[in-house]
Write a protein that binds this DNA or RNA. Sequence first.
DNA 1: TAATTCGTTTAAACCCTTTTAGCATTTTAT
DNA 2: ATAAAATGCTAAAAGGGTTTAAACGAATTA
Lengths: 339, 339
Amino acid sequence: MKKRILISDIAKNLGVSVTTVSFILNGKAKEKRISEGLTKRVLDYVKKVGYKPNQLAQSLRTGQSKILGLIVEDISNPFFSNVAKFIERIAYDNGYHIIYCSMDNDVTKAKELIQLFYDRQVDGYIITPPEGLDDTIENLLKNNVPVVLFDRYIPSLETNYVVLDNFNGAFNATKHLLENPNNKRVGFVSLFSNQTQMRDRLDGYMKAIDDFEQQAFIKKIKIDEDEDSSIEQLHDFIDSNNLDAVLFATNYLAIKGLMAVKQYNMELPHMVAFDDHTLFSLYEPGISVVTQDTAAIANELIHTLLNEIKGKNKELQKIVIPSELQIRGSSRIPEEVVG
Amino acid sequence: MKKRILISDIAKNLGVSVTTVSFILNGKAKEKRISEGLTKRVLDYVKKVGYKPNQLAQSLRTGQSKILGLIVEDISNPFFSNVAKFIERIAYDNGYHIIYCSMDNDVTKAKELIQLFYDRQVDGYIITPPEGLDDTIENLLKNNVPVVLFDRYIPSLETNYVVLDNFNGAFNATKHLLENPNNKRVGFVSLFSNQTQMRDRLDGYMKAIDDFEQQAFIKKIKIDEDEDSSIEQLHDFIDSNNLDAVLFATNYLAIKGLMAVKQYNMELPHMVAFDDHTLFSLYEPGISVVTQDTAAIANELIHTLLNEIKGKNKELQKIVIPSELQIRGSSRIPEEVVG
DNA sequence: TAATTCGTTTAAACCCTTTTAGCATTTTAT
DNA sequence: ATAAAATGCTAAAAGGGTTTAAACGAATTA
C-alpha cells in the first residue's frame, strides 16, 4: 500500500525498456520474440514487488475500462440484488468491475445513466429496459456497444437478452390455481406496462383461463402509484369480484396484496407471485411462487456480455430461462379435494 | 453518441488553445484572467456540441477517479441495499459514482476488495468492516485515504464512522419485552462476533435484564453456519429454555427464528428484531423491530465521506444515529394486562 | 564483401486531460 | 519616459501505461 510502483521503475531496475516489460506483462513475449530468460526475470520481479498496472492509464490507452454497467429496475428488490450479487462475483473473477444503478423504471433516469456510463467508457451494459428506451438502446447497438437486456426485452430491436419463460410461468401458475375445483374466479394483478415480461405473463394467464373456459379478472396498477392507493385498489379488486385466487405479476405487487389482506382483514385468496421473497416462504400459509434461477440468469447474462465484448458471439443470444412453480400452502390443493 | 469530441477539437474550431478551453471548463476563467467574451463563446460552443471531458484522462491527470468504493456485508440484505440505494443517489448528485461489493463478512475477501479499489484509485471508502480488518483499515488511514466505517467500527482505530445507537436500541427493546409481566424469560440471539454493533447490542440487552433483575439467556450463532443447523439450534434455545420472548441481533437471525417457529411448529415467542424487513410488518402477528433510519444513515455516510475527500472535516466524525423501536403485534403488551 | 534476414529490444508516439511556466502586449506607477 | 505590474492567452510537460515503427547486432544469403 506504499508508494505506487510504476512500469518505468521496473524497467529501470531491471535495465530493460518499458516496452519490453509491457510486452511481457501483456503476454506478448512469444509473439514479440522476447527471450524466455528475460521473460522469466521480468515476471519474477513483477511478482516480487507486487506491481499492478495503473488501470486508468491502461484504460485511457486501450479504450477498455474493464467496467460493466448494470442498470436494474430497483437494487433493493431482492430479485435484482441477488442477480447483482452473482453478476458481481463472476465479473470480478473475469477481471471486470460492476457499476450498478437503479433506474426505478424511469426512462429519463435510465437515459442519463446510460449516457453517464458511456462517458465513463464502460465496456458493456446489462440493462432491464424501462418502456421508451428503444431509441437509446438502438443507438448503443449502432455504435457496436455490447449490450445484454435482462428480465424483459425490446421486441423491435435485435439484441441479446436473458429473460424468464414468462408465458409458461404464468400459464402453469394459473393452471395450478384453476386445477383446484374451489377456484372458479382467478384474477391477475399486473402493472400498466407494455414491457415484454408483463405482456407474456398476461398471455400465459389468459391462455390458462381460456383453456379452463373461465372468466378473466385483470387489474393493473400504476407503477409509481402511492402505496395506500394501490392497496385500496387491490382490496376492491379482490373483494368486489369475490376472487378465489390471484396471480401477481411481481413480488412487490403480491406484497401489496398481502398488505391489503392485512389492512382490510380480508380472507387470504389463493395466491401465486412472480419472483420469490423471504416473506413468501415464511408467511402463514406460504405463498406459492414462480421462481427464476437467479444464479443461472446471472451466469447467462455475464457470460453473454463478456463473449460479446470479446467478439466471441457468432450470433445474438436470446436466452429464455425456464421458470419453476414452487407450490406452498396458500394455493395448495386441499387434500380432501385431491384425494 | 457519435464519435467522441475532444477538447482539442473545441480548441481548434474556436481558434484558441486547449489550455484556455480547459481553464474555462474548470471554472478557472476568472482566476486565469480569461476575457468574459471568450469565456462565453467557449461555454456556448461546448454546450452546443455537448462536449464532456473524458473521465479517464481527467482521472489519470488529477488522480481523482470520482468513484467511491462501497463495501458492505451483503448487498442482498434489504438493510444494506436500501442504504446503498440512497448513497448511490446522493453520490450521483455530487458527481460521484459508486462501485459496490459484498464481502460476506469474509476478511480475505474484504482485503482483496480494498486492494482492488485502491488499485482502481477510488477516491474514498465506505466500509462495514468484518473482524480482522484492523490492519488494512489502519493502512488506508496512514495513507490518508478517506474512509468512513458504517454499521460497526473498530475501537482501536480513530476513524470516521456512522453507526446506530445499538446500546439503547437493544436496551429499549429488551425493556419493552420485560415490561410485559408475562415475559419472565427473555432471550437474546446474536452472532459469534466481537464487532462493536454486536457487543453494544448485547450490552444493551444485559443492562435491561439487570435492571429487571432477570436471568439472561444468550445464544450465539456462527455466521457461516448452514441454515438448517442454525434453525435447529434456535429451536433448542427457545424451546428448552421455555423463553417467553426473544431479541434478535439482526434481521436475518430473526428470520431464521421464524423459520424455526414454522418448521418446529412452535408457539411464536414475543419477538423484536434489529433492522426492519418487509416480512416483519406483514407477518401475522407483526414482528417488532429496532429500526435504523436508512436515509439518515446514507446521508451522513456520504456527506462525511465527501467532506473528508474535500478536506472539509476539521475533526473525525463519529456519528451515532438514534434507534427507534417500532412495536408490532408479536410483542405488544396484551390489553387486559395494560388496562 | 555487401546485402538480407532474423531475433531482440527500444525510442517515440499515442490516449486525453490538467497544470506549470511563460510570452507578448497593455496598463499603471515612478 | 521607463520600469513594473497586470492582462490575456498558450506551449509544453505531466500523468502512466500500450503499441507502432524502427534500430541494432548477429547470422545468413547473394
